[in-house]
Nucleic acid binder design. Sequence first.
DNA 1: AACGGATGCGCAATAATCTTTCGTGAGTGC
DNA 2: GCACTCACGAAAGATTATTGCGCATCCGTT
Lengths: 166, 166
Amino acid sequence: MVAIRLDEIDRKILAELQADGRMTNVELAKRVGISAPPCLRRVRTLEESGLIRGYHADVNSRELGFEVQVFAMVGLESQAETELSAFEERCREWPLVRECHMLNGEVDFILKCVAPDLSSFQQFLTGDLLTTPNVASVKTSLVIRGAKDEPGVPFDVLEERMSRTA
Amino acid sequence: MVAIRLDEIDRKILAELQADGRMTNVELAKRVGISAPPCLRRVRTLEESGLIRGYHADVNSRELGFEVQVFAMVGLESQAETELSAFEERCREWPLVRECHMLNGEVDFILKCVAPDLSSFQQFLTGDLLTTPNVASVKTSLVIRGAKDEPGVPFDVLEERMSRTA
DNA sequence: AACGGATGCGCAATAATCTTTCGTGAGTGC
DNA sequence: GCACTCACGAAAGATTATTGCGCATCCGTT
């Protein structure tokens, strides 16, 4: 995981693969303006460097039966590093918790959760989350509707920055 | 986008492609226990039905130069549908806003934002978000560190449910 | 300027995969 | 029992992935 110097082509590759992770290498090569072999080599390098963590199909969770999406703000009794790590480890083990971020401010963690239905989530909330040691407070908010959900990062912002620096 | 009846194999396909979206079709077919042609047909059907929305490379945003990640809780003056839609449309236009979810409770929206650095975010916050008409309050929380960030849904939970129903 | 070394490209060839076509068998309704 | 439907899998040709190699370019050195 060495720091890699990226050029214009690398950034284009990342942007294209973020937009369509299943694009063939020849198509990708065509789009970024080089031939297939060096393009594949660049992709491999980006993967090995950790800049590309992986590729994932974006599945429609609602149609799959996960009707409920919830954000949970969690406050802990103790913010000692041991306690923080312990809580994070718990989160990693709970399948319904998809994301766990430690925050500044009054709330210690924000969790993004999914569940097949409300009762499944309630069960998780009361049975797992609220019974976890050191959890002081949990405030949950149901997602009424999703307005935007773009994976990844805005490459156009990056390009602007680069051109300003250059 | 017709409702599709999924069998065991379809769910396995979704789970595999969620875990590795760039898996070759022959490898996928091997894993789910059928031959390549019907496997590819199933994948195409899943794509056309909208159950697979797309494929995305998971790029390391921090290494790419997006050092800052922020959750913003937004409250609006008016919650009339026109106003809600207007705000959502704004969010779709802001590249730094990656997710926008409408919530129940005291806060109307939660936004997940990224930015190259703090000052970029401050600029967005004071220049764009806070100057948007109808925005009553914004509470932001910096992400100190990420503990878990799994894309997609937990298929093991789904399997449990299926076996219980069957 | 000339010389190496490193880097990265593209061509060509081979291996692997994708994709279509087609024949077959299982299940279903009449 | 007889179509009919549906999905599977084998085969084959088209496309893609991957490797090896020669060449150009860029840099730092002499």
